[in-house]
Amino acid sequence: VLGGAPATETRWPWQVSVHYAGFHVCGGSIVDEYWVLSAAHCFHRDKSLETFDLYVGLTNLKAARNHTQWFEVNQVILHPSYQMYHPIGGDVALVQLKSRITFSDAVLPVCLAPADLNLTGLACWATGWGLISQQGHSSEELQEARLPLIPIAMCRLLYGHRSYIMQDMLCAGDIWNWKTVCEGDSGGPLVCEINETWLQIGIVSWGRGCAQPMYPGVYARVSHFSRWIRYHIQVVPTPPQPTPALSPALPSTLSVLVAMLVSLSAL
């Protein structure tokens, strides 16, 4: 996040860090005890699912706290329009975890924006561990920035070509104060507060550079995908849980039994 500030702990309890091969690569958000919402481009190009790790309850990438939890990926569902029209639009991924998230004050799900949400006048925030300067500096502390929403017509004008900004996208950025999202923030949430409830309206997706204020950040519009997201969360079975292992404990159990029998027979 360019022009942001470090976030305090537990302020963004739905924030997820997606690691690949041990490094933070993307953001995400908790939408269910088994599901994380992120960007499709974070997971495409035949990346190995086994190499991903997801962290929740984290504000400093180098300092796990007692509420930090680590997860492996069970499966990733990319939105079909991303697979059809890549790289334009549909930049949404649903990530199913191998085990369930334990919710706490520091780890909570965010609400999905409904399809009929009126975005006018909302106070919205983006968060992430992406680059914090045009020179490529990054931050280990989660950054936050309050970003105004930019009407889609204005965003199309700024980008200069009508087809770049599609109906399943929205734009946000503070073009006067140079605040916007950047590389490494992808997949993270754009959230707005309504009646003391935080709704996710966007998923960080793309932009033309980060340091050119006339090109705001472009987000996948969550309300466009909310039915698809809810459907998969409801119908996809939870991952199979490992059964308790009997074999490693068996030899010691047997030896105890044998010892008991021997001692009984000696009486």
Binding site: R11, P13, F103, T197, P237, T238, P240
Partner: peptide
Amino acid sequence: WVRGPPKSPRNSSRGDPACGRRAVPGK
């Protein structure tokens, strides 16, 4: 092949928190 256990119902008695609600400050 195993499809996994059936999904538990939404808003079950395990007391899943409401979405989008931060913990009360000082809690």
